[in-house]
C-alpha cells in the first residue's frame, strides 16, 4: 500500500479528535441523532391524534423544541457576549462561542418561522399573520441575521468582538418580548405549551413524553452543532493567522528580490 503524504498525515490530525472533549462531542451527536429519530417516529406514527387538532397536532413535537433552541442559542450568544465584555472574563473563547451559537440560532429561528408557518396554514388556515408572537419572532431572526452580518465587517478582531458582543446583547432584548408576547398582547398564536409562566402543561401522556424528548433531542443537536461550529471558528482564526504570516513572508521575499 502506497502511503501518500496526505494519507500519512491523516492519523496525525485525527488524533486531535480522540481527545476526551471530542468523545463527548461525538457522543452528544450520536445521542442527539438517535433522539431526533425517536421523536420523529413517535411524533408521526405512535402518538395519538388530539381532540382539537386531530392529526394536525403532530407538528407539536417539532415546532416548540426548534423555537426553544433558537431562544437558547441566542441566550448563549448573549451570555458569552457579556462574558467577553466583562474585563475579568474576557477571552477569545467567548467571542467564538457567541459567533458559533449565533449562527446555529439563526438557523433554528428560521426553522421556527418556517415550521410555524406550515403549522399555521394547517391549523389556523393562514401561512402568516401579523400578531405579536409572529412579528417579534421574525424581528428576532432579522436582528441576529444582522448580528452575523456585523461579524463579517472587516476590522480588528478585538474591535469586532466588542462591537458584536454589544449587538448580541441588544438583540437579545427581543427574546423575552417574543416569549412573553402571547401573554402581553392578544395573539392568534396559542400560549406556551411547556415553558409557560404558570408551569402547567396540558398535554396528555405519550404526547407529553414525545414533546419532552423533542426538546432534549434538538437541544443535544444544538450542543453538537455549536461544538463543531466553535472548532471551525478557532481553526479559521488559525488559518487567517498563518495566511497572514505567509503573506508577510512573501512580501519580505519580494522586497529582497527587488
Amino acid at each position: 500500500m502506497i502511503i501518500t503524504r496526505r494519507q500519512a498525515r491523516r492519523p496525525l490530525t485525527s488524533s486531535s479528535s480522540r481527545r476526551p472533549g471530542s468523545l463527548v462531542r461525538t457522543a452528544t451527536g450520536v445521542v442527539g441523532l438517535a433522539s431526533v429519530a425517536a421523536t420523529v417516529w413517535l411524533g408521526l406514527w405512535v402518538t395519538p391524534p388530539s381532540t382539537n387538532l386531530g392529526q394536525l397536532v403532530r407538528l407539536l413535537y417539532i415546532h416548540p423544541p426548534v423555537a426553544w433552541v433558537a431562544y437558547l442559542a441566542f441566550g448563549v450568544t448573549a451570555a458569552a457576549s457579556l462574558l467577553y465584555l466583562w474585563r475579568r472574563t474576557r477571552s477569545v473563547v467567548w467571542d467564538r462561542l457567541a459567533a458559533a451559537s449565533g449562527e446555529v440560532g439563526v438557523l433554528f429561528c428560521g426553522l421556527t418561522l418556517v415550521s410555524g408557518s406550515i403549522w399555521g396554514k394547517a391549523t389556523w388556515g393562514v401561512w402568516w399573520t401579523w400578531d405579536a408572537r409572529l412579528t417579534s419572532t421574525a424581528l428576532l431572526f432579522v436582528l441576529y441575521l444582522g448580528y452575523l452580518a456585523l461579524r463579517r465587517v472587516p476590522s480588528d478582531p478585538g474591535t469586532r468582538a466588542k462591537r458584536s458582543a454589544v449587538a448580541a446583547i441588544l438583540a437579545f432584548a427581543d427574546v423575552p418580548i417574543s416569549y412573553l408576547s402571547v401573554y402581553w398582547w392578544k395573539t392568534l398564536h396559542q400560549t406556551g405549551t411547556v415553558l409557560n409562566p404558570q408551569r402547567q402543561v396540558h398535554v396528555h401522556g405519550l404526547m407529553a413524553w414525545t414533546l419532552l424528548l423533542g426538546f432534549c433531542a434538538f437541544t443535544l443537536v444544538y450542543a453538537w452543532l455549536v461544538a463543531h461550529r466553535y472548532a471551525v471558528e478557532a481553526l479559521a482564526e488559525r488559518q487567517q493567522g498563518e495566511g497572514l504570516a505567509r503573506a508577510l513572508a512573501e512580501r519580505r521575499a519580494e522586497g529582497r528580490a527587488a
Binding site: P48, T51, G125, T129, Q190, H202, L206, M207
Partner: peptide, 26 residues
C-alpha cells in the same frame, strides 16, 4: 373575507370511543 381558527395549548389525546370528539375543543 378571511377566517382564522384559534386553538389553545391544550393537547388532549382523542379517544376513539368518545361520543363527541372535539367537544372540548378550544
Amino acid at each position: 373575507n378571511e377566517i382564522m381558527v384559534k386553538h389553545s395549548a391544550n393537547y388532549v389525546a382523542a379517544h376513539p370511543n368518545r361520543v363527541k370528539p372535539g367537544a372540548n375543543g378550544s
